[in-house]
Design a protein around this nucleic acid. Structure first.
Lengths: 188, 188
DNA sequence: CGTCTATTTGAATGTACTCAAAAGCGGTGG
DNA sequence: CCACCGCTTTTGAGTACATTCAAATAGACG
């Protein structure tokens, strides 16, 4: 079964007709490694589902340093949620970390979907709730765990990415420099 | 106007009848300073609106150190969202930091409300979205800002609490020790 | 007034960072 | 096929930021 359909079916059940209608609103795209889908100042107009490959969401601070906020391997959703919810320009960059296939659902078509098939409201509500819970957990982890422990959490959360991503991206995600991260790994 | 009604009216408009029905589902409570409303392992069954006073949500790590995750001064909502959404035991403690008056809406009555007056779904959806956006911002801030800058963010976010809360609670929120925080303040 | 808690101050320590340089690795073109 | 280039990772020395522990001081509350 299509990964996106499987993802949706975890929370709601669709008839064949609804499934077809849903996919008629979704746009599929192939994107090569290291392509930027969204940047600082853009208005985020799509929810992105990753069918193959991997994307990362990051910010760039005033010293010019990148900070990875989230990763989206196959089967995950990604977007600049601030921008998507408010319609205002966001601060997130979204980029592929490998050759990828993504499925895009625009805010506009999402609204249409909600009108036609209300149970999708439930689906996206649950998606939002899950994202909130996991973000809150990250705030807690950043306040209470050591770099080592934050790395273990990363491994639990993204097992498929441990040997996929450049170390510097993992370092940035857990909030340490690549140099420190390298030393940390060699000690454990 | 009642603070809770004002809070709701920012996003949806209620008829007098709907307003009355809503308040019939809400339970109001006075709580003295330093009372625990929820602790580690509890299942969170209510969304809490703070009418007067202030609450804090915190975790306790395995070294026994408290970490303030969120504050809720008058006009704010608070809950252990993980537990509230999933129905499982949470890890958050919620405690009053001053004599307070809170208004409780149980998960159960919230469901009832959604059945009777669907526009409340919209209201709580927006509340969830806002919470997500602000949590994501906190993740970003914790990765990119210095302790000094995180303190400034705290001041923007909770202006009413700057001279209200014990410093150690602010220190814990921004993720430094009380001693370091004290030195930081005296230098600026 | 006395007790309890919060805050300040100082010294010693540790964790993580910066900067610099070397080594490793992967892809590309000759 | 291999040599080179660019990027990532490693290693080391010196430094900065933040912590721990201890003790003194200040405030709040009964």
């Amino acid at each position: 079964m299509e990964a996106l359909l499987a993802n949706i079916s975890r929370y709601i059940t669709l008839t064949p007709g609804e499934t077809e209608r849903f996919f008629s609103l979704v746009e599929e795209k192939k994107i090569r490694k290291k392509q930027l889908l969204l940047q600082d100042g853009d208005i985020c107009k799509h929810s992105i589902f990753v069918k193959q490959g991997c994307l990362r969401g990051y910010t760039i601070d005033k010293q010019g340093t990148e900070h990875n906020i989230t990763f989206a391997p196959a089967g995950w959703w990604i977007a600049d949620l601030y921008s998507l919810f408010t319609g205002k320009p966001g601060q997130l960059f979204i980029e592929t970390t490998s050759d990828s296939v993504v499925q895009l659902l625009s805010r506009e078509k999402q609204e249409q979907l909600f009108q036609e098939i209300p149970k999708f409201e439930r689906f996206f509500r649950i998606l939002t709730e899950n994202a909130l819970v996991s973000n809150q957990q990250r705030v807690i982890d950043n306040l209470s765990l050591s770099a080592q422990e934050r790395y273990l959490k990363f491994c639990e959360r993204y097992p498929s990415l441990i040997n996929e991503l450049p170390q510097k991206h993992i370092a940035s995600f857990i909030g340490v420099t690549p140099e420190f991260f390298s030393k940390m790994l060699s000690k454990s």
